[in-house]
Design a protein around this nucleic acid. Sequence first.
DNA 1: TTCTTGAATTGAAGTTTGTCAACATAGAAG
DNA 2: CTTCTATGTTGACAAACTTCAATTCAAGAA
Lengths: 124, 124
Amino acid sequence: MLGQDESDCCPTLLAAPLEEEQAVELAKVFKALGDPVRLRLLSMIASREGGEICVCDLTPAFDLSQPTISHHLKLLRQAGLIDCERRGTWVYYWLLPGTIDMLAGVLTRSGKSAASGPEGPARV
Amino acid sequence: MLGQDESDCCPTLLAAPLEEEQAVELAKVFKALGDPVRLRLLSMIASREGGEICVCDLTPAFDLSQPTISHHLKLLRQAGLIDCERRGTWVYYWLLPGTIDMLAGVLTRSGKSAASGPEGPARV
DNA sequence: TTCTTGAATTGAAGTTTGTCAACATAGAAG
DNA sequence: CTTCTATGTTGACAAACTTCAATTCAAGAA
C-alpha cells in the first residue's frame, strides 16, 4: 500500500518523482479504471442509493455476457475499489471509498490555481 | 471532452451513473495512467522545477530503450496529459494541468467525510 | 555537402487483456 | 434428495499492449 502516514504523507504524482514501487502499485489501480465497462460499473455502484447494488441490477445495463461482467467486477475488487457480499441468492457490491480518495489525492495539485496555465510553462 | 459547464457540471464517477460515451473517454485517460513507466514519466515531468523537462533527462532514469520511452511519452501526449516542443536538438515535455484536474474532480466525492466508512454501507 | 547527436517511427516477438461458451458453485424451494 | 436461479470459474481465442532492434528524421557542426 502507498504510504499515507506522517513520514510519507499524501503520495502525489505531481510534487515529486514517483518511486518505482509506488508507481507499480498505483498503476494497478489506474489500470482497473482504464476500461469503459469497469468505469460504468464502478459509477453505478458508487452512485447507488443505499450504497450497494445487486449484480442482477448491473448485468442488464450492458450488452455483455454475465461472465464478462463478473470478470470486470473481480478486477475492480482486486484493485481495492469495491467489495461484495453474498446475501441469499444474490451478491451485493459497494464502494470502498479509501482507494478512490487516495487516487483523488494523488491527482490533486496542491496549488490549485492552475498557476502555469493550460498552455504550459513560461518558455524562454 | 467531458462536459464541464453549468448544465453538466463536474462529471463524477460517484454521484450518478456514467454514460457510455463519457466512460469511453475517461477510460482512455485512466488507461494512459495504468502503467508504472508512464506514471513515473508523468511524475517526473509534473514535478520538474520550471515546469518542463528534456527527454534526455527522462530516458536515463529507466532500464528501457529510448524508443520505448518515446512510445510511452506519445501515449501520455495522446491522452492529453502532456505536451511537447522541439527546441533545437532537444525535445521538452510539460504537464497539461487541465486533464489531471478533470480526473481529480471525477474521483472526488462531494461529501468528503467518508460517511459510509471503509467497511461498506450500513447493512441489514 | 557530410557527419554527428537526440528523438520519433517502423516492424516484429512475446505478453496481457476482453470476451464468450461451457461448466461449476451456492443457496432457495420443492 | 432434486431442481431452479443467480454468480463465479475455466478454457480458448482475437485484439491490444509492451518492448526492442533497426531505421528514419530533425537540427546543429564541420
